[in-house]
Simulated assay, not measured.
Amino acid sequence: MKMISVYDSVGCILSHDVTQIIPGEFKGRLFKKGHVIKEEDIEKLLSIGKEHIYVWEPSEGELHENDAAIRISNLVLGEGVCKSKEIKEGKVDFFADIDGVLKINKDELFKLNSLGEIIVSTLHNNTPIRKGEKIGATRVIPLIIDEDKIINAEKLIKNKIIYVEKIKSKKCLLITTGNEVYNGRIKDAFLPVIKSKLGYYGSEVIKQVILPDSKEKIIKEIKNGLSENVDMIVCTGGMSVDPDDVTPTAIKECGGELVTYGSPVLPGAMFLLAYYKDTPILGVPSCAMYSKRTVLDLVLPRVLSDEKLTLEDIAAYGHGGLCLDCKICTFPHCSFGK
């Protein structure tokens, strides 16, 4: 790459984008990489302070920033992700190609960013994502990079770093427990909450059963739901450690595998997760009725994408598991669950 005077640049090809900034009015690309400079362009270049331009004369073993960014994109992008059709100022943006849960291989991402001169930036792992949402970007630092740096990255990274797990539509059985609700002393407030949170992801409550605090009756209805092949069972009410709250015991004794009773998330400490074969059973604490965001908002999209969560997955939520209950909620683009 060599520098030449703009007065001698007619007919030359720009090796990079040229940005124009008009304070308070405009910031953007004046000329695109690859633009062939014309006589009338000279005055425009001078007006933004460009008295010289850089013309790249490629040498063997060198890559332009755009070409390097494309190769990095091809290296890191997996299923459910697409990239920008146009490269601006050497940067390629990444977008979700489907509704789902963003997955980031954090170990591989760290290795790639540790090489130097190569950067990949992403949103947080396990963020629920809508199709078309921006989820990351890449570029290299120098305008011209040694190709060996890219080759080393291609040898080092063995797994895709960024992908989106598709969220599936599921049919849910809602079992609401509590003597006060069963006997009509208070109105159930769980149904609209669970319907809303499931509906946001295209799933639905196909049946609600309201039961007293009876372990045997709860077990019976869980087994009925399993025999009817529902995709998921959500149990609400009776999730504390009071002697009358028997829902956790009923879930444990229904024949499934208990993952956890308790989570390091506030609100949501009394959350329960179990599986009967591949059918998830969620015990949702009362905080879900009145808090905007709880542990349910963190776990639900992952369950709906058919990820089988482990105790380690739940334990990891302790770091970032405190909801600040902001007046204006920006979840999932906040610190909660990150």
Results as ranks from 00 to 15, higher is better:
Gln208Trp: 04
Arg71Lys: 08
Ile194Lys: 11
Ile186Arg: 12
Glu133Ser: 10
Asn179Glu: 04
Ile314His: 08
Cys12Glu: 15
Gly34Thr: 05
Glu165Gly: 04
Asp244Thr: 08
His64Trp: 01
Ile162Asn: 03
Ser121His: 01
Lys220Glu: 08
Thr176Gln: 12
Ile98Cys: 14
Glu253Gln: 15
Leu123Gln: 05
His333Lys: 08
Leu46Cys: 04
Asp93Thr: 06
Ala315Ser: 12
Glu257Trp: 04
Pro332Ala: 10
Lys327Trp: 09
Pro264Ser: 05
Leu226Cys: 09
Leu75Asp: 03
Ile70Tyr: 03
Phe26Trp: 12
Glu117Arg: 15
Ile161Gln: 02
Pro332Gln: 14
Asp231Leu: 06
Lys111Gly: 00
Thr310Cys: 09
Asp93Gln: 13
Gly116Ala: 02
Thr279Leu: 09
Val205Arg: 10
Pro248Cys: 13
Lys170Leu: 08
Glu221Gly: 00
Lys134His: 08
Ile42Asp: 02
Glu25Gln: 13
Gly238His: 09
Leu102Asn: 06
Thr249Asn: 11
Ala316Met: 09
Phe336Gly: 09
Pro285Ala: 08
Cys82Ser: 07
Met232Gly: 08
Asp245Ser: 13
Val209Thr: 11
Leu273Met: 05
Lys223Phe: 00
Lys215Ala: 01
Glu79Asp: 15
Leu226Ala: 07
Arg185Ile: 07
Leu300Phe: 14
Val284Asp: 05
Thr294Ala: 05
Glu117Leu: 12
Val234His: 02
Asn183Glu: 15
Glu221Asn: 10
Thr177His: 04
Ile135Val: 11
Leu191Asp: 08
Pro142Glu: 06
Asp99Glu: 10
Ala153Phe: 05
Val76Arg: 10
Met3Pro: 03
Cys329Tyr: 06
Pro192Asp: 12
Gly202Ala: 13
Tyr200Ala: 00
Thr260His: 01
Ile104Gln: 11
Glu257Ser: 12
Ile141Tyr: 14
Cys329Pro: 09
Lys83Thr: 12
Arg293Gly: 00
Ser84Leu: 09
